[in-house]
Computed example of a mutant assay.
Amino acid sequence: MKEARRGSIVVVLVGCLWGTYWFPLRQINEAASLGTWATVCALFAACVLLSPWVIASRHRIRSVGIGTLMVTGSGGGAFVLYSNGLLYGQVAVVILLFYLTPIWSTLIGRIWFGWPITPWRMGAIALGIIGIALVMGPANGGMPLPSGIGDWMALISGVVWAISSTGIRTQPGLNAVESNFVFCLGGLATALLLALTLDGMSVPGVSLGNLAEVAAWSLFLGGSWWAVALTAFLWSAQRIEPARVGILLMGEVVVGMLSAVLVAGEPLGVWMALGAVMVMAAAVIETWPREVTAHTVSE
């Protein structure tokens, strides 16, 4: 019980911390106009910082099977898409697009495993779709569709994370540090691929004058958010129910939207606020534990 309580507190804190992730990420980009290479810098720092903790267990990591490594690494790839979405898109829109993940998880569970979609879940899907339409309509000139590369990255990141998290539940796991190392390694590979594809090898903004600033922000972001916070999150997720994890993470949406409004000066109109509430409500409804759902799925 004490571990579950501590785990719940950690998940709330991690969610709130990730609500501010956009700020140090954009500081790296502003320091040297790195674009997608900013995420590469953060992931490289995270992998370096985590490496000493997993050297002793490297043989066990290799022995868990390619399936576990692939689904865990793809989770890191999903977070990289989310990270880059925050560079190019409006923070509130990107966060809410990512938090459509429960909808994709429900649909993937139905298609892959034949899990039923209950009336509650159908209602959550409808609520989430209507909510994101309200969010994106004002942001994109009245058209409730993704606009720009940032929105599309956020949307795809939610789908990939839904696939990854569904797969992780069906695979034997590693401990929190080992899982996060594989997670960050997969993220680093994805970040490199995206950076080479979108920005190429040229990074004209980097110079001796701003190299120290880039390195400092990269270590801060990679260490605090990717290495420490995600390891703590994975530790907590092993000790509390998945449904509770999803609900407690809602703090990221609130903190992310408020910080974007107060610090970045992003607009937050009435329709966008209403849509955000609907997306959050959909996520809570989808992840809320219900005996009938659990019983039906177990059958």
Rank of each mutant, 00 (worst) to 15 (best):
E299A: 12
W22I: 13
M278L: 15
W152C: 02
G142N: 07
F79R: 06
S259G: 04
L192P: 00
G65R: 05
I163C: 12
P119Q: 06
A276G: 15
W217A: 14
L248Y: 00
E266H: 07
A232K: 05
S33G: 15
I168L: 11
E266N: 07
R290L: 13
W271I: 07
K2E: 00
G137E: 07
E178M: 12
N29W: 00
Q238P: 08
G109W: 02
R121S: 13
G167A: 02
A45P: 02
G223I: 06
L107D: 01
T101F: 08
L87N: 08
V253N: 15
A189E: 05
A276N: 09
V284A: 02
W115I: 13
I125Q: 14
S164V: 08
G67M: 12
G223V: 06
G167C: 05
A189I: 13
L25S: 10
N210T: 06
G114F: 13
P144A: 00
V214Y: 09
Q238F: 12
V94G: 08
L211R: 14
A162I: 02
C16T: 15
L258N: 06
R5M: 00
S83E: 11
A282E: 05
G246Q: 06
E241F: 08
G76N: 10
G265C: 02
P289C: 00
G269F: 01
L34I: 07
V160Y: 05
C47H: 09
G7P: 03
C41N: 13
L81S: 11
A281C: 03
V54G: 03
G222K: 00
A133Y: 06
A32N: 08
A45R: 04
V177I: 15
V253P: 14
P24L: 05
A4Q: 00
L234Q: 15
V12Q: 01
W271G: 13
G128A: 04
R58E: 12
R5G: 03
G209N: 12
S74C: 14
G109R: 01
V14N: 04
I28V: 14
G265T: 04
G200D: 10
G128E: 01
G77H: 03
A154E: 00
L219G: 15
M278I: 09
L86S: 08
L221R: 05
R58Y: 15
L145R: 09
E213R: 11
A176G: 00
G222W: 02
H295L: 13
V206D: 10
L268C: 01
A32K: 06
V206S: 08
M280F: 05
S157Q: 03
V11A: 03
T293M: 08
R60Y: 11
L219E: 09
V255F: 01
I108H: 01
S51N: 09
A56M: 00
E299Q: 12
G35Y: 04
I28T: 11
E241Y: 13
W115D: 15
G265Q: 01
V214T: 13
S298T: 10
M1G: 07
T118I: 09
W104K: 04
V245T: 12
S179D: 09
H295Y: 10
P116V: 00
L97I: 11
T118N: 04
V40R: 00
N84V: 15
R121E: 14
R239F: 01
M278F: 11
L49Q: 04
L96R: 01
M280W: 01
L208D: 10
L208E: 10
Y88A: 13
E213Y: 08
G200W: 11
A216L: 12
